[in-house]
Write a protein that binds this DNA or RNA. Structure first.
Lengths: 262, 262
DNA sequence: AATTGTTTTTCCGCCCAACGGAAATCGGGT
DNA sequence: ACCCGATTTCCGTTGGGCGGAAAAACAATT
């Protein structure tokens, strides 16, 4: 008899046992680097048999959850996007925060970012970048480690103790020579963030960029998100930006307390 | 013997036969009006048995595609949102267009909208609305009939003939006394839109709002989206806005021709 | 606190739809 | 026209999905 299919890694993602899991695996096959895939690619990436993939993908495309481009590749469909737009921590949060972010952008014309925490990483929910602002490495819907970014420091500083410990006990990733990788140093930085009500990340992700971030609190008083402004490092003194960012963050926090809206 | 489950409407959405379809039905249970649902509500709305729903929802929540709020309700999860962010006609389009929309907003401080066509309806992909702009009835991720809105007229005017016929052969919805509901009149409006390269919808959705819209063309020359500006009706002469909106639309069209970006 | 009604969760055996091997068909490149 | 990989159709087998029933957790009411 032939050997059965083996999961790639014993500790890795579990084998797709259930039909539901297989559907999710198809979705998960799409990434920022590869947002368009052929049938065979999907089958390979999701670890499913060709025939199975064919049937699943067919049904998903039928209902608009996937779309087919003219070169026969598959992409994420608008139907999925429409439903995802209902995610409270996604578009709903963005919708509420946008006017404030808009103001921030108009005053500074720099990069404005809004992010939330997902497990031990940062997920960017909104990013406004004019053509003239510093290029940053982030994308809406993208993830980033928490330890280096401004928004990450804020989110981590107010995260449950267990999350903080988990991050601190894992080797901290390095991006530049300025990146803080010493757990002890990071720990005291987090304490400072809690004390001051804002965070500054100076050249820790990109050499010449400084980020100023402030916390957004939900109705229950827990941290819900974080706003930041990313400016050219050598340039402006970020000190003047601190009150601006904090004001925006407070504005959003206030908006979240309004019932019905949130 | 007890009667089996009957589909709500013989011609309506088919009964959930496949496992995949059931997963999609769970997702589809969430709407703008009801973005948070209890288990029983999901079961009811998706037409699934309690036990089945429980198992599905459990697995979906496990992997972050659904989230559970503290009041035990379910919501769309960030995981789904992250994947949906890869939709070319969703966030990818928005990302490309944002700088141009940003400019439009900064110059006018009015409502800026970006929309695409999905079958016979308009889906709003982006909406920038300052606190001081006219309130509009649209939401990002929301749908609207094509016949009344500015973006809808543009998208319909450049849509395949069969789509136009389908829309024109269905009773046109009315929102205000100004709404065009005569197919013949609409037909000549569409011709004008093609001829002029822009559309104006005056008070057809909201009494006192005028919308100026222009088409965005994809790399293949087909229409890909539509941009619009919505201003207070009695106020500014929209004539001056036409070149502005058209310029933005052309800018986005140009951006879509750049390979790699799109 | 005790009672009642509702929602959520666990358990389990039947059975059908999902599965994937194999082969036919399509398509795009040379 | 030819070839090779990608896609699609076909079909017999079987394992995971299914839902009834009952327990457990929870909420509301007296």
């Amino acid at each position: 008899m032939t050997d059965r299919w083996q999961p790639p890694q014993p500790g890795g993602s579990a084998a797709p046992r259930t039909a539901t899991g297989k559907v999710l695996d198809v979705f998960r096959a799409f990434t920022q680097e590869r947002p368009e895939l052929t049938l065979t690619e999907i089958a390979h990436r999701s670890g499913l048999a060709m025939t199975t993939t064919h049937r699943l993908v067919g049904e998903l495309a039928e209902s608009g959850f996937l779309e087919r481009s003219h070169d026969r590749r598959y992409r994420i469909g608008l139907q999925l996007w429409e439903i995802a737009a209902l995610a409270p921590r996604g578009l709903a949060l963005r919708e509420l925060a946008l006017p404030f972010l808009e103001d921030l952008y108009e005053v500074t014309h720099e990069n404005v970012q809004l992010a939330v925490r997902e497990t031990t990483e940062v997920v960017f929910v909104e990013r406004i970048a004019g053509r003239r602002a510093v290029p940053v490495r982030t994308r809406v819907g993208g993830r980033f480690p928490m330890s280096a970014t401004g928004v990450g420091l804020v989110l981590l500083a107010h995260a449950p103790m267990e999350v903080q410990e988990q991050v601190l006990s894992t080797p901290l990733p390095r991006f530049t020579t300025e990146t803080v990788t010493d757990p002890t140093e990071l720990r005291s930085m987090l304490a400072a963030v809690r004390r001051n009500g804002f965070a500054i990340s100076d050249g820790q992700v990109t050499e010449d960029a400084v980020s100023v971030a402030a916390p957004v609190f939900g109705p229950d008083g827990d941290i819900a998100a974080s706003v930041s402004l990313v400016v050219q490092g050598a340039g402006t003194r970020p000190a003047s930006l601190i009150p601006t960012v904090r004001a925006a963050a407070r504005g959003i926090s206030r908006g979240m307390r309004t019932p019905g809206t949130w």
